[in-house]
Design a protein around this nucleic acid. Sequence first.
DNA 1: ATAGTTATCTGACTTATGTCAGGTAACTAT
DNA 2: ATAGTTACCTGACATAAGTCAGATAACTAT
Lengths: 293, 293
Amino acid sequence: MISESEIRRLRRFNRVVTSELGAMDQSFLGRGRPLGLARVLQAIGQGKEELRDLRSYLGLDSGLLSRHLRVLEAEKLVVAAPSQTQDARQKRVTLTDAGHREFDAYEALSDQHAQELLGRSRKRKELLAAIDLISATFGSRQPRIRRAAPTEPDVTYAMGEYTSELSDRFGRSFAVPEMSEAERQDFLPPRGVFLLAVQDNMAIASGGLRPIDQYCAEVKRVWVNPAWRGQGVSRDMMRSLEDEARELGYASVRLDTSRHLQEAVSLYHALGYREIARYNDNPDADHFFEKML
Amino acid sequence: MISESEIRRLRRFNRVVTSELGAMDQSFLGRGRPLGLARVLQAIGQGKEELRDLRSYLGLDSGLLSRHLRVLEAEKLVVAAPSQTQDARQKRVTLTDAGHREFDAYEALSDQHAQELLGRSRKRKELLAAIDLISATFGSRQPRIRRAAPTEPDVTYAMGEYTSELSDRFGRSFAVPEMSEAERQDFLPPRGVFLLAVQDNMAIASGGLRPIDQYCAEVKRVWVNPAWRGQGVSRDMMRSLEDEARELGYASVRLDTSRHLQEAVSLYHALGYREIARYNDNPDADHFFEKML
DNA sequence: ATAGTTATCTGACTTATGTCAGGTAACTAT
DNA sequence: ATAGTTACCTGACATAAGTCAGATAACTAT
């Protein structure tokens, strides 16, 4: 079971992190606005514009939220508008230009704090892996899979991690693939698609689909952040890619992979892919799979 | 430099952890006492008894702390007494029996929360390593080295980690050494000593010294929590052990180690130890060192 | 001995946060 | 059409938290 010392280690972690977060709050107060208002402003800036979302996200009483919004309105940082929904009782608030500036200022403070923390670490890569593992363990439970343009920053991030992992696994350096305009189009409907699994606002997994010919698409660049592995994320990603392929009118998908990525090989077997002969000249691939849709 | 995505990962971590800590606070409120008072009570229970310590630890205004203490006194949870120091103006507060019970109740809540969090993890060992790395990176900077009795829980914890690491390194299972009463005496003055490096109230490194003969002591069980490595902790530990050996009247120290612990071998070289011939029959050792004090 | 400093306490005040009971207008179910 | 419900707002109130200006007694430096 869970030992005394494990509990103490977690509690030490709690103590340490609490004091860091306290420092963060202090820096927010520097803008002369109580924390409650700052939180509301940040939440709105992050797209929580419907009042009901805001209330549930911040856990606020409706009266209190109403009052906070009144203050922010008086400061001309937000404006109220009727909600997008049918219901004319519901409202939404959006940031004014001044509101955006103020929001950006809070974002900059957060970024600065984050940067300062990262700067303290000698072993940044390990630290980030540790941070991700904790985010994965304690974070909200539902990664959401959505389409993404190959040029999005989140895709760039995912591809960076992907190639860095390939480099580790293969023991030699891979470069992030530079895509031509034509290659990017291959990953966009109607020819293909690029998917990201997003949790707590950040990509934790990716996968792409591009045409081989009229009837067959190829699965490429499937990556899952190591901290989220073992929770069925890659399975969900593969299923979503297959769904997309069907919708785009393909009859089958193919993919290649390598003995250096053993979990991948097992996964494809488990998902009903069958091994086929080499269908391309990728020198790093030694396993080839196909699945009829 | 520090990239955009690294900052976002740290901020995601912040978000996730903030909401966990919020849940913790909620559970504290269940005892019908505002957070401020609960914190004071906890701090006193943790040995912050001098008012000045309390103030600086909790960052409280002296007036506010005074009032908080008055409330706790009225509840008969704490009693004030003159400070241990010369200065008759200074005061200290201690928990009454009822105070201890109340403190224990808060401790139980914390433990319960910690346990619940750990229970959520599939990969507990990795999670704890991640937690330690973050504690090491963001925690307070000064590990303190102190003597410890071989029977202390912290020593037991350190030895558990030590043997578990040996098992990993050697690729076979080591058991935590059962010590006879005589062996324990070997690690206690005047014959020897056992040291712990403590940070944020927990052991992060250990080392022991026991007699070989009248003139020479042996360094044993040097362990540093992996999260704290690379910061000179082992160096400090070795220096402290040497100081202790000198004080206990030894003229030299010896130690054995293994090629499986390459950092250890380098460290001993760097600290001025010279390799000598095998001086014992430890089958796991293949390097032997000595240093004149 | 004297002047200045320090540790703690008290009272008065402010601000932040939270709660609750209506109120209005817009909705839903029948 | 009517009764009941819901989303948001307002006013009144309560509690928590923090600030500040003295007051007192005990200290320190000279």
